[in-house]
């Protein structure tokens, strides 16, 4: 196992990804290489269908590239099996989805505690940790509400608490404000950025909203399966 750049939390090398559509395959990413250093906040922007969500899925170990290498925290995950990938997702990545993806059957507390249960932490401790995270996102008074009983902003904050409960070094957010009104969206982005600032959690946000992209330290533009750095401060 080769560790090249210890300061790079994410490192993609010559990633090409194609989806099989019937007999032929349709490429969505061509020879993409980039790295994100630990603690950086980074936006991935692009038109819909440009391949930016695919890029996030590859970083998040939800998908495997057709060719190229994916390194997370210095470890080559390209050829890891489904089990190792699941464990790596649990230990270093927190996901925030556009449609929140809370489990409707569980209340806020158990939704947040779920990643810790998969990590093998007993339920009482997991719930305690979950309550701490709900307090951090300002929802400790909603811990026994089901997702259906909460507003979109509240649900996304529960989802962020769930992403944070495992103390991940990387937060991946796919259009985290896509289903929220603009005021709530600003609050959510503010929350994500404050986590990035205060705890040094690396933040990668996929968005098509330039207002959000501008608040990140770095912006990567995906266009027709290739990336270019959009130069802003």
């Amino acid at each position: 196992m080769q560790r090249v750049h210890d300061t790079d939390l994410i490192r993609l090398e010559n990633i090409t990804h194609a989806y099989a559509t019937g007999a032929s395959s349709q490429a969505v990413l061509y020879d993409v290489s980039f790295s994100v250093p630990t603690g950086q906040s980074c936006a991935i922007v692009g038109a819909s269908g440009s391949g930016k969500s695919t890029l996030l899925n590859l970083i998040g170990l939800l998908d495997e590239p057709t060719s190229g290498r994916v390194l997370l925290a210095g470890e080559d995950m390209t050829n890891a099996d489904a089990e190792s990938r699941a464990i790596a997702r649990n230990r270093i990545i927190g996901f925030v989805f556009q449609s929140f993806n809370l489990l409707p059957r569980l209340d806020a507390l158990d939704n947040v505690a779920l990643p810790l249960l998969y990590r093998g932490i007993p339920q009482p401790q997991a719930r305690q940790a979950a309550l701490t995270q709900l307090e951090r996102v300002g929802l400790s008074n909603r811990s026994h509400h089901r997702p259906a009983d909460m507003s979109g902003g509240q649900r996304q904050r529960v989802a962020i608490a769930r992403a944070l409960v495992g103390e991940p070094s990387l937060l991946l957010a796919d259009e985290p404000t896509g289903n929220l009104d603009s005021q709530t969206a600003q609050d959510i982005i503010g929350l994500l950025l404050s986590l990035n600032r205060e705890r040094g959690t690396t933040l990668v946000v996929v968005t098509h909203d330039t207002g959000i992209a501008d608040r990140m330290a770095r912006c990567i533009q995906v266009r027709d399966g290739r990336i270019e750095e959009a130069g802003h401060a």
Binding site: G60, L62, A82, E83, A86, I87, R89, N90, R91, F95, F97, N101, L102, L103, L114, P115, Y118, R119, R162, G166
Partner: peptide
Amino acid sequence: GVRMALGARPRD
């Protein structure tokens, strides 16, 4: 899918 993203292995 959500469970898998949160760390559920195939066997889980």
